[in-house]
């Protein structure tokens, strides 16, 4: 979709901060010199078009008490579709990319406990028959630039 200059300014502001205020949209309208109605219309459209994936609270998975990891699998070319369907069937899988490496399927997994995490990885291996999997949980985070929603915003 095409974004006009007001859309871009609006996105710029709300990527960092949405006012935590009884009337956040009126506040935004004041900042941008327009009406609350205009802001609400723009947000509705940006959400419908998928430009905005979520509006409001973005949680820190660890502080919420969840365990996360990044996994990579070596999947033969002709099995990618089928394996991806198995992996994506778990709701804790938030992101899944094909990358140009022998470890070609990369997904993030977020779950309530370490036990559940291990169980899901075992289940994926069992159902796909692919055991060549790297489980790479972050041991330290040096940087997450939140404005870049690469997916690792609610990160693993």
């Amino acid at each position: 979709m095409t974004l006009d200059s007001m859309d871009k300014q609006l996105l710029n502001i709300i990527q960092s901060n949405l006012p935590i205020d009884p009337e956040p949209y009126r506040k935004l309208a004041e900042i941008l010199g327009t009406t609350e109605e205009d802001i609400l219309g723009r947000l509705k459209r940006l959400i419908e078009k998928g430009v905005i994936r979520r509006l409001g609270a973005i949680f820190d998975s660890r502080k919420v008490g969840y365990c996360g990891t990044l996994c990579a699998m070596k999947v033969p070319e002709d099995r990618i579709e089928e394996v991806v369907a198995v992996v994506n069937s778990f709701p804790g899988v938030t992101h899944n990319y094909l990358r140009d490496h022998p470890y070609n399927i990369w997904f993030t997994l977020l779950v309530e406990s370490q036990v559940e995490l291990e169980n899901i990885l075992q289940e994926i291996k069992k159902r796909t028959g692919i055991s060549d999997m790297l489980n790479l949980p972050a041991s330290r985070i040096f940087k997450i630039l939140v404005n870049f929603d690469l997916g690792e915003d609610d990160d693993a």
């Binding site: 998928g50 905005i52 979520r54 690469l150």
Partner: peptide, 23 residues
Amino acid sequence: KVREFVKQGIIRRFGAAVRHQDL
């Protein structure tokens, strides 16, 4: 409560999650 969650870092950010490819 939302302000408290932000302060505690439970809410990492209160804003919009945007698909960057579109930008």
